[in-house]
Computed example of a mutant assay.
Amino acid sequence: MKYKQIKWLILILPTVTITLWEYIRHAFLLPYISMELGNILSPVLVFVVTLIFLRHLFSILERYQEELRWEKSEKSILIEREKLARELHDGIAQSLFLLSVKMNKFERKKSLEQEVDFQKIKQTLQHVHEDTRQAIKNLQYLPNEDVFSWTDTIYQYVSELKKNHLLDVKFEWGIDEETLSTKEKIELFACIKEAVVNVIKHAKTNQIWILSKETEDGWICKVKDQGIGFTNDNVHFNEGYGIRIIKDRARDMEWEFSMKRIDNETVIELKKENK
């Protein structure tokens, strides 16, 4: 029995009961039951019939409500788990990967260069610590719009890529910060970091382009490289967890996402069109 059917039965049952009773009473029982006794029996009969049938209907309705509460609870848990997975992957997993790369290089370095590499490893470990704390904080609190300086953050990130990871980053930024909401800044920055790490992991190149510009009805942001790529025919087979996270973020923000191979360049593009 469906939820709407139960509600209609709860509404209709008392009316149907009293209608049938009054018909039977006037058609067949007037010679045997006085008017006063019939008036007394009417609410009693309605109460008894309603109690018998509505107890069963209410039990079904309560079961539906309990199932609905359980589904909402499960959905909220899944949302939190996905959010936690994003935070951990964006911060800890990326830093640990870069740390493992540095450790492998460290083993092959000469002793004179060990001190420099050791300092870089310490910096990466510090980033892991900071990312962990930030991930926990992000799960507990909403970002403070007053203290979030997105422009400084992204320029600092590019500077760290050049300094700590020996990357040649071609950075051209043309999106005015005022055109982005706080949530857009956070999500776009996370997508850029994810795309850069994807290049470091898979492209086998030390050159990255981070480009953006405003359009008539929105903006476009691209991260591209000239490393080992893929063909457009098998692009879906090359989508790891990081790329899926970018796609999910873009979908949640109602941005357009694309990943293409154009003239020996892998291009990840995010595009917003104002509606």
Rank of each mutant, 00 (worst) to 15 (best):
G242H: 03
L54D: 10
W21E: 00
A250E: 01
F118R: 13
L139T: 10
Q5A: 03
E130A: 14
K170T: 11
K102W: 08
E74Q: 14
V46Y: 01
N232Y: 04
E22C: 09
K224C: 04
G218A: 09
I228C: 02
R63S: 10
D217V: 01
S111L: 15
Y241W: 10
P143R: 13
S181E: 12
F106H: 13
H202A: 07
V196I: 07
F97G: 04
Y23C: 03
V49D: 06
L37I: 05
A85H: 10
K183H: 10
R251V: 06
I210D: 00
E269Y: 01
H202C: 05
S149M: 04
F257Y: 15
E80V: 04
S149I: 06
I12L: 15
E273L: 13
W219M: 07
E194F: 08
F106S: 12
V116W: 07
R249G: 00
R55T: 15
E74A: 12
T17H: 02
N238K: 14
K137Q: 08
A250T: 11
I268W: 06
P143E: 14
L9R: 13
K163P: 01
I6N: 06
G174Q: 11
T15D: 02
W21N: 03
H236T: 12
Q226E: 13
I175C: 00
T205Y: 02
T151C: 02
L180P: 00
E194T: 15
T215A: 06
V48I: 15
A27N: 03
Q156V: 01
D146Y: 10
R63Y: 06
K275P: 03
G229P: 03
L29E: 00
I136V: 12
V199Q: 01
S258M: 06
Y32N: 04
E82N: 11
N144R: 10
M259P: 00
F237V: 14
I186W: 07
N198V: 12
R69D: 06
S76G: 00
A195F: 10
G229Y: 14
W70Q: 13
N264G: 05
A85G: 01
W209D: 09
T19I: 14
C221E: 07
Q134S: 13
E36D: 11
I175Q: 01
N206M: 06
L41C: 06
K2I: 02
Y157K: 12
I33R: 02
L45K: 01
I40N: 09
P14S: 11
I12E: 05
I77E: 11
Y64P: 00
F148G: 02
K260I: 14
W219P: 01
V169G: 06
K201A: 02
E172V: 10
P43K: 10
N104M: 09
S73G: 08
L41M: 15
F237I: 15
L167W: 08
G227W: 15
N232I: 08
A93V: 12
K7D: 07
M1D: 09
Q65A: 09
P43T: 13
